[in-house]
């Protein structure tokens, strides 16, 4: 060859943004692409599990307290059986006449006896030990303190031995404990989310360091900041996408497995902890947030590094 080959003058020298296959070739995926997808996958899976636990616990508390919050118990503590029966009669009448009361049920003495048998023995009858009568009342609205006090006043005028209690009062310690657990789950989610964000941030930065020389070279060959940021962001996004999908899959599997175990308990209370569609949407949003964060980190990292170059 006598003459060196030189490309024609027709070369495009404008600042054309480039993407797709050509961009991919500038920062191609190195083999395995390092630990970044795995770090992200683990963090996402843990965050998904903690979030699922928190959401399930929240559902459980809400559902149970909704059931109980409109329920009242009226006790008639009258030693004399006949008078007690009359008072129950009178109380039922008064309660039925009240607008706030949706339904009521007098707990039959047999049922009561059965309930207390473990404590006072099955031989006991209404004659030897006086057992109070109970009326379960379901209100149309919430059984709040004001309502309880009002009904108490309504009854006590006629029946001095009547006592009205909100049923949720009985279970209050249980709900307090559950609420505490809920806060614990929330704190766990916040911590995990922060750790995940940190992991994504570090992974994106370490990935940038692997490509720093390439970035410098493309910069010196006339690549614009946007061109360079885009190709690098693309590499990081693919890593984050991989990590996010794998993490969500593992997290979901774990949640479904544990959910099944609890469903097998077949307890009314635990059933209240099922995840609703809304909860699944929240869980699915976790990897999406992770991917967005990775992209943002990549962009900020590469842009600030480029600004330090001339």
């Amino acid at each position: 060859m006598s003459k060196p080959p030189l490309i024609g003058r027709s070369l495009v020298r404008d600042l054309v943004p480039f993407g797709g296959r050509r961009a991919a070739k500038l920062v191609p995926r190195a083999r395995g692409s390092g630990p970044m997808p795995w770090v992200i996958a683990i963090m996402i899976a843990l965050t998904v599990m903690a979030a699922a636990a928190g959401l399930a616990l929240g559902n459980l508390v809400n559902r149970a307290s909704a059931d109980l919050s409109s329920a009242l118990t009226v006790q008639i503590v009258e030693a004399n059986g006949e008078r007690r029966a009359a008072q129950v009669e009178r109380a039922t009448e008064l309660l039925r006449g009240d607008d706030a009361v949706a339904s009521l049920r007098v707990v039959p003495p047999d049922e009561l006896a059965e309930l207390i048998a473990p404590w006072i023995g099955s031989g006991a009858s209404g004659e030897s030990i006086p057992i109070p009568s109970l009326i379960d009342v379901q209100l149309a609205g919430a059984a709040n303190t004001a309502e309880v006090a009002r009904l108490n006043a309504l009854l006590v005028d006629d029946i001095p031995t009547a006592r009205v209690d909100a049923q949720s009062d009985w279970l209050k310690p249980v709900y307090d404990a559950l609420a505490a657990l809920q806060y614990l789950a929330l704190a766990l989610i916040v911590l995990l989310a922060m750790t995940s964000a940190g992991a994504v941030w570090l992974a994106a930065r370490s990935s940038f360091n692997n490509h720093r020389r390439t970035v410098e070279i493309v910069h010196l060959l006339g690549g614009t900041d946007r061109q360079i940021a885009r190709i690098f962001q693309r590499a990081v996004t693919i890593d984050a996408l991989l990590g996010g999908v794998v993490g969500l899959a593992f997290g979901t599997l774990a949640v479904l497995f544990i959910g099944n175990q609890f469903a097998a308990l077949d307890s009314g209370m635990v059933a209240g902890g099922n995840l609703a569609v809304r909860d699944w949407i929240i869980l699915a949003a976790i990897p999406v947030a992770g991917i967005l964060l990775a992209m943002l980190t990549a962009r900020i990292t590469v842009m600030s590094a480029l600004r330090r170059m001339l």
Partner: peptide, 13 residues
């Protein structure tokens, strides 16, 4: 690389 950065098409380069 410099041609790709400048937006030259694959066929042309």
């Amino acid at each position: 690389l410099p041609l790709r950065v400048a937006g030259v098409r694959e066929n042309d380069l």
